[in-house]
Amino acid sequence: MTPAPPERTIRVVTLYDDVMNVYADRGNLIALEARAAEHGVGVEVQSVSLGDPLPEDADLVLIGGGQDREQRRVADELAVRGPVLRAWAAAGTAMLAVCGGFQLFGRWYRDASGTELPGAGVFDVTTIAPGPGAARCIGDILANVEIEGVGEVVGFENHGGRTYLGPGGRPFARVEYGRGNNGEDGTEGAIFQNAVGTYLHGSLLPKNPALLDWLIAAALRHRYGEGSSQALIEPRPAPYAERAHAASAAVARRRSPKFEPVVK
């Protein structure tokens, strides 16, 4: 028996997933497809790599992190695509930009040699690579999201760059254990409408089901309109994800430093 085709579908664009995938961000798409199916939501995935055209529109955009060499190639192209991506974000497209993808979705990234790579400008953040002596921010992280119903998120961070919010920037979360954007101000990631930038991988979406549901709901609202019946998803349990979340949260509490703001 083949299941009836879902009555509703979201259009997902994965950006540069052949090169921006170094921290297993593919797990985000795996979790999205599985969870959307549980909600009766179809997922059409379009993979857009270097040189490929962007589609007309998208309900959800995913981008992960890459190695330095690969990120330089992606940065050039993302800068050109910035206006389209910013227009999508302003129109409510849901986005998840992780680690290097988050940095490149900011205004610019200044590498260790002082060269500035322009970003897509979806988030009002800038990132500075510290000098060679500075330690990378590596470890388990637990942060509290300011979106209603999402609450605590857990993951693993591994980044050299320090990210700072600009005057129009809002943090995605507040760090409780770990380092976050820069290890100084307690902010983690950035949020603009339904677009989320973050340093958390792990992978992020599999073990943070509340955030995953929020992104699916946002993508549905973008596709079918606020208040439409097709845009609603019912709460449903996610037992495997919830247990993995609890286990990862316990590890972060045990192993990572409780965040203390740096007083200058």
């Binding site: 995938n21 921290y23 297993a24 961000d25 593919r26 797990g27 795996i30 590596i138 470890g139 388990d140 693993f156 591994n158 991988h201 792990g202 992978s203 599999p206 495997y240 247990r243 993995a244 609890a246 286990a247 590890v251 192993r255």
Partner: peptide, 29 residues
């Protein structure tokens, strides 16, 4: 310490096979 790598492995190749899996270890969940 970062267990993300399990998402890069193609565990899907085993789907549909008759098998029993017991998960264990500090990150069993």
């Amino acid at each position: 310490q970062d267990v993300s790598w399990i998402y890069d492995a193609d565990i899907e190749v085993l789907a549909g096979r008759p098998m029993t899996v017991t998960c264990s270890g500090g990150r069993a969940d």
